[in-house]
């Protein structure tokens, strides 16, 4: 089991601070990183992978700074970037073989691992096809396969479910759940339902900062009493959506049923209901202002 400790990690670009004083310790288990687009998730993952160097603070793996571990640290890693590149003319199998070479995997080990993983991501029957003929979901699946090639002890997945259809997402969730038992898995998303079931701990980022951390229950408990349900007319619904965070809206005849996240009762007659992770996420990322752009 490895321990990854982030101490006051900072990343500044020319005019923007993408990650601010991030402190956290990861051990085995599945960690879900939630945040709006631009919250700093990708930068944080790049920092953890050693692709980017922090402008402040340090990252330690088992109390050794990752920058000084070099290849020994990368040996432990499996990484799926958000926008992962590939050579379009490569077949799926050749791409995985090329990645296996970069990961220094011996040929016989790589052979069996590639077969196993292609089977797992259900791409075995298209292994001889060129990547440029693959759909977005298939590319994502081959990306997941390459991340798992070296049986990594630290697995970092940036928006792994982007482009996957519902069936693929369910299968992916099951795979991640099983992987998290004996390694560290960190996956980022802005789709709350992706990590709702599988993450042991959830981290919510906003403007480069860690604003909330805990189990799903711990996070949802914090917004207990702040989620309301009400049925209003369409006209009233329009007014409410402009002044409150509405996490769900459903038409029922001439009226509209709203699910509202608010510290106070939004309208007379609104009932308090049990909070979900989606509500908590909206509460923490939008209650102090900001865009209402979470994907639920």
């Amino acid at each position: 089991m490895h321990e990854l400790k982030l101490m006051d990690v900072q990343k500044k670009y020319k005019d923007k601070e993408a990650v601010r004083k991030f402190n956290y310790t990861f051990t085995n288990g599945v960690y879900g990183l939630l945040g709006e687009n631009g919250a700093g998730k990708t930068t944080l993952m790049r920092l953890i992978c050693g692709v980017l160097q922090p402008t402040g603070g340090s990252i330690y793996c088992d109390n050794i700074e990752i920058a000084s571990m070099g290849a020994e640290y990368r040996r432990l890693l499996g990484y799926l970037p958000q926008d992962f590149g590939y050579y379009g003319d490569f077949t799926a199998e050749r791409f995985l073989r090329y990645m296996a070479a970069l990961k220094a995997l011996p040929e016989d080990y790589a052979d069996s691992r590639i077969d196993e993983l292609l089977d797992m991501v259900e791409l075995k029957n298209v292994k001889k096809k060129k990547l440029k003929t693959f759909s977005g979901g298939m590319i994502r699946r081959i990306g997941i396969a390459q991340a798992l090639l070296n049986n990594p002890e630290i697995l970092i997945l940036d928006e792994p479910t982007a482009g996957l259809d519902p069936k693929e997402r369910v299968r992916f969730r099951n795979v991640i759940s099983s992987l998290g038992k004996n390694r560290m898995v960190l996956l980022s998303t802005h789709i709350v339902s992706d990590i709702d079931y599988i993450a042991d701990r959830i981290l919510i980022m906003k403007n480069g900062e860690l604003i909330q951390e805990g189990t799903e229950k711990e996070i949802t408990d914090k917004v207990e009493g702040c989620v309301w349900k009400c049925i209003v007319s369409e006209k009233e619904a329009g007014q409410i959506t402009s002044s409150f965070i509405v996490s769900n809206m459903r038409s029922s005849g001439e009226n509209v049923e709203l699910r509202i996240v608010s510290e106070r009762q939004p309208v007379a007659g609104a009932e308090n209901v049990e909070s979900t992770l989606e509500d908590a996420y909206l509460y923490h990322t939008q209650i102090t202002g900001g865009e209402k752009n979470a994907t639920l």
């Binding site: 790049r46 692709v51 990368r74």
Partner: peptide
């Protein structure tokens, strides 16, 4: 290009390549 980021996280990384 796009392979650089992925390659940098590998044992034999982009810089070494």
């Amino acid at each position: 290009g796009k392979m650089a980021e992925l390659g940098e996280s590998c044992y034999f990384n982009t810089k070494q390549c």
